[in-house]
């Protein structure tokens, strides 16, 4: 009886979000799924080709290069953005003076357009006029000087760096919000019990914000899987596809080469990859919780 009393509220509350989401996000996704099974240049009639597009991309070495690049970006973002975000947030949380100023400053890079950041970094890396090499020389690491964007070994990481760095502030904000929602008494009583700062962090604070860590990890993974702008602006994904991610490769295929069928197929693989990673991650999170 009670169960049915809930129904009108449930429907009333869920309907708006469900409708908008389904109409403007899910249906377009289904359409993209359909395009991925066709040959379409964006102008003439679509020709149904079944799974040919997928066969094409899976046998294309460029696809696998961008695939690897994307995975590298996901891993590097996870290893840098999350710990850095958490560390900075925790330092700010520990009764730091000027916390508000720091918090705002850390967030600033997030709001700056990637075009500007990318331009700045291109100038930064430039071996003729840039300061990066000069800086290395100044601190005695002159041996590491190189043409960052023209060296096969460094160029992908040089393109990743601005993006990974730019969004750390996002995680600082989320973690700081999470830390501040921990009841103060919890930490205080641990302090009274004589726990050290590291102990407090790992045994009191971390378990409290585990939910938010999950949020950050998912945001970080999906954000990296969709990465586009920095690579597109700095190098156009090149040379070749050496600094392209799946998102860049998809855009280039669909909008530059007008092959919307194959472009949509690449999109579907991005979605599938995200799904797999998210499901794996949730399984893992559930395992560690038990």
């Amino acid at each position: 009886m009670k169960k049915y009393r809930k129904a009108p509220v449930c429907i009333g509350f869920l309907l708006p979000v469900f409708l908008i989401y389904t109409l403007f996000l899910f249906i377009p996704l289904v359409q993209t799924g359909y395009y991925s099974l066709t040959e379409w240049n964006g102008i003439t009639e679509k020709i149904f080709v079944g799974l040919d597009n997928f066969r094409d991309i899976f046998s294309n070495s460029d696809y696998w290069i961008t695939f690897q690049n994307t995975i590298k970006l996901v891993v590097i973002s996870l290893l840098i953005q999350i710990p850095m975000g958490l560390l900075l947030a925790y330092l700010l949380y520990m009764k730091t003076r000027g916390m508000k100023i720091y918090r705002t400053v850390f967030f600033l890079p997030v709001v700056i357009a990637p075009v500007a950041i990318s331009l700045m970094f291109s100038l930064f890396y430039n071996s003729e006029i840039g300061v990066f090499n000069r800086l290395l020389e100044m601190i005695g690491l002159g041996a590491f000087q190189t043409n960052w964007l023209s060296n096969i070994r460094t160029l992908l990481y040089a393109v990743m760096a601005p993006q990974v760095w730019q969004y750390i502030g996002l995680y600082v904000t989320i973690f700081l919000g999470a830390l501040q929602s921990i009841p103060g008494e919890l930490v205080e009583s641990a302090e009274i019990d004589g726990a050290s700062r590291t102990q407090i962090f790992f045994h009191v604070v971390l378990p409290e914000i585990v939910n938010f860590t999950n949020i950050c990890i998912v945001l970080c993974v999906t954000g990296s899987l969709k990465a586009f702008e920095h690579s597109w602006i700095m190098t156009g994904g090149g040379p070749g596809v050496r600094s392209a991610y799946l998102g860049v490769y998809m855009y280039k295929t669909a909008f530059v080469n007008s092959d919307f069928g194959t472009g949509s197929a690449i999109t579907m693989t991005i979605v599938a990859l995200s799904l797999v990673i998210t499901v794996l991650f949730n399984k893992l999170a559930a395992l560690t919780r038990d």
Binding site: L155, G236, G238, P239
Partner: peptide, 15 residues
Amino acid sequence: SMMDSSLDELFIKAI
């Protein structure tokens, strides 16, 4: 676009 991106590769002596 293939000519453009491959020429970039040629210039950094990757191919």
